[in-house]
Design a protein around this nucleic acid. Structure first.
Lengths: 353, 353
DNA sequence: AAAGTTTCTTGAAACGTTTCAAATCGGAAC
DNA sequence: GTTCCGATTTGAAACGTTTCAAGAAACTTT
């Protein structure tokens, strides 16, 4: 790889002049500028970001840390971020923490040593991360949190209207006549999962519907978690007539469980998810889901980040993006009479309505 | 951020000694080593990868360039690569080229200026990329191609058995009695897409089945492409009784088109995909698909890459990973008599059974 | 034409590491 | 108590940039 020195020699100018041409940092007269540009072209010179970053104390990269690249929601966010960053001349480098706390910390630490302009993080754990992030007081890379908000985090954030989304979904089920509504949450230490549960509770409370404790199951945000939580729920007495899965991966697991138990959706149990992934539209039946604007989430994250780079002292902002309920054949009215498996009494009381 | 100099001062040793301790590059007697380690811990020192990389002409990052992060196949590959790289002490940084040639080149060029140990690339375009890669003759980062093989590319590669996989899928359709089999390919300048088409052709030729030219549709590797290609195919006369979609995103598009035209899968038309994505198992009906070992693809890529770092002069290797056909309800026997839309005569023949 | 301005250009320092020749140390042999 | 030798430790150079004080050139003014 050619260096600036070789350019300087070939163009017969000084090193400083080459730098000035390359960065427009000072006026350079046409003939010299020309010679430099020619030399650059002739040698195919590309500046070393390493050296440049070392000297300027900052590189043109923006780091992004996501919890799980195999959950299609995150790639959507990444794409939004990538487009926005690339458009502004920054290169997005992505790190997949794989839901692993130590990997997340390792990436956070490593990324820093590359002096990126900023870091966009979808945090997957709380306490540790907060400490790390805490040290972003005055200098170092700008950090923006996406999708989830660590407790005590003071900084820019973009999230979606989790609580409202959950209310929409739950309310819709209530409107259809469901009285036995269960939910499978994500890990409740995550702000989003917590908010969705709050929304679920709020909607039911407002409709004066009781929720048995065991109708709220905490799970990881993946298919396996949803599957096993659903197996449990679907064998309870009385069986819930609707399940609100707090993300689409969980909903997929629920769908598997439903199928496996020989039940039919939505005849026996309605199902609504959260994310609105493309792929869940093609499920059997098409999944109703609360749509999150993943692409915008990422794009907005980069926007906040770059604005803060420009004005480090502006007030912290917290953008909340709206969600919308996508209807789908996976929800319908509750079964007119709920079949009981064991208890005769429950079958009797049930028909009182 | 503390620097090595501050460590040296605090530990009351020279800069060189700190470096020796940190890299075990020379024996350092216990008392000194101790002092250095203490200082490192006290200051929370992290070496600057920028400075280190500049000096050593190589950093601990491995770059990875993928064509489309929203196609779930690629995240699976990334995860495999990430696990393998992380386990060996390297940090994987991912760049999403977004099916965009200029982005791909920009990332390739930029990545290089960070002096990564290696680059893992799933190339999405041919000529340009080959030129870029070509310059990796003797020095610079090790480059390994994944999944697709640029023409004239001399270097390590990992791909899957595309042709064999396509044969498996096609053969299965033939065995079920299909005679009118169409395919929707990916962009044929990609080696994988090309190979799959070859496999498709080979299986049919062997069974002495003719393929009308219009039964082979080229498309992009995404849902939209599959959808519009399928709309065309499904309105041809005679209508194919089976479609081999050359990846699962295309298959999803086909499924949408089938549904939209009021047809039923597999009653009217069988569908088989390629990728074996998790999510397509839950489709309506569950998609039969040729499974590719995405995770292993990524992991093997890193393995080859690191082996070449160790022994730059070994012979180039080309690993081919096996594919397996995943059965699913989306394929069945052809309709006994194929319904025609316009011609009366064919409507008459239909009732003969 | 000399002095004064303004505009360009240059050279050297600095960023935080690694590396390596040279200096120092601690003993063993004399 | 010297002299030597191998084992440690040190100091300075180098990696490829940017930055900035200072020098050189090109114009203006007188």
């Amino acid at each position: 790889m050619p260096t600036m020195n070789e350019i300087a020699r070939l163009a017969e100018v000084s090193l400083g002049t080459v730098s000035n041409v390359l960065n427009n940092s000072a006026k350079v007269r046409e003939p010299l500028r020309r010679r430099v540009m020619d030399a650059v072209a002739a040698l195919g010179y590309e500046p070393s970001e390493l050296a440049r970053g070392l000297r300027r104390d900052k590189t043109n990269m923006i780091g992004m840390i996501i919890p799980d690249i195999t959950n299609p929601f995150f790639p959507a966010v990444v794409r939004g971020a990538e487009d926005a960053a690339f458009g502004s001349g920054y290169r997005l480098v992505l790190c997949n923490a794989d839901n692993n706390q130590s990997k997340e910390i390792a990436y956070m630490t490593q990324l820093r040593t590359y002096l990126p302009t900023g870091i966009l993080v979808i945090p997957s754990n709380f306490s540790e991360m907060t400490m790390q992030l805490g040290s972003s007081k005055r200098s170092g890379p700008v950090i923006v949190c996406l999708d989830r908000m660590p407790r005590h985090w003071k900084g820019d954030t973009v999230t979606v209207a989790n609580e409202e989304g959950a209310v929409q979904a739950t309310q819709h089920l209530i409107d259809l006549g469901h009285k036995h509504i269960a939910t499978i949450t994500g890990p409740l230490h995550l702000s989003g999962a917590h908010a969705r549960l709050m929304g679920f509770r709020r909607a039911l409370k407002q409709a004066a519907i009781q929720v048995p404790m065991e109708y709220v199951q905490e799970s990881s945000f993946d298919r396996a978690g949803g599957y096993s939580a659903a197996l449990g729920l679907l064998q309870m007495q009385p069986r819930p007539t609707a399940i609100f899965a707090q993300n689409d991966m969980i909903a997929m697991g629920v769908a598997m469980a439903i199928r496996e138990l020989g039940l039919l959706c939505p005849r026996d149990v309605s199902l609504v998810g959260f994310d609105g992934l493309d792929v869940t539209e093609l499920m059997d039946p098409p999944l109703a889901s609360v749509m999150q604007p993943g692409y915008q989430l990422g794009a907005m994250g980069i926007q906040l980040l770059l604005e803060r780079v420009k004005e480090p002292d502006r007030l912290f902002r917290h953008h909340v993006l709206p969600t919308t309920l996508r209807l789908g054949a996976s929800i319908g009215p509750p079964p007119p009479v709920r079949p009981a498996k064991k208890t005769r009494s429950s079958a009797a009381t049930k028909s009182k309505k």
